[in-house]
Amino acid sequence: MLHIKDLHANIDGTEILKGLSLDIKPGEIHAIMGPNGSGKSTLASVLAGNEDYEITGGSVTFGDKDLLDLSTEDRAREGLFLAFQYPVEIPGVSNINFLRTAVNEIRQYKGEEPMSAGDFLKLVKERSALVELDGKLANRSVNEGFSGGEKKRNEVFQMAMLEPKLAILDETDSGLDIDALKIVAQGVNAMRSPERSFVVITHYQRLLDYIVPDFVHVLYKGKIVKSGSKELALELEARGYDWIKEEVSA
């Protein structure tokens, strides 16, 4: 589904990704862990099409498309979803109006008819319940005045509405208390399917108790330096990253 090969990316002339490769098949959950500054969020931004980053080498294919050739909106329309680490507040744009526009622009891209108002509202009701998001929040301006937990739940709610092929969760767990974390995980798990893949970027093993990954990768200095099963996350939790750093420099 997603095939990243030797990806290099810079921001303001500093190289952050230095030859990253990763393969993700349909239905898989990949966790990406790593110390601060290793390039985790850069990977998420680059995949979503953030133009602040310059791609200097490598390739990314998504399905049968060259992802790096697509605009941000076309990546989303092809089924790539990024749950932002810091969701943006947009005063004056209602969450509902925004989502309806998004759903229908994606449908139009696929040559489908717009969703009827009735079907849309039904879907909103069903999917907002997955993350226990209050109906009132759905009618408010996008993320405006939302608590940290509400913002993260709103990201997962949007994912559930847009039904992507690949969802990247960028530190969706950071700053959440355990109850909010469970709700977010429950939303993600409800959306699991043999066709849908997830990339879970996190600092903490705790999330992976609730969203159980098929693979765990360690990103360090812009590359994936170690991959393993979910047990690797437990080992990282117990031993920290120093042993990985030593392995890399050895």
Binding site: N50, E73, A76, F84, F98, Q158, L162
Partner: peptide, 17 residues
């Protein structure tokens, strides 16, 4: 960028804003 990352085209995104 946030709106575009949800599949909303740039022209429409600016319109909404």
């Amino acid at each position: 960028f946030y709106l575009r990352a949800r599949g909303i085209g740039e022209v429409m995104a600016r319109k909404l804003l």
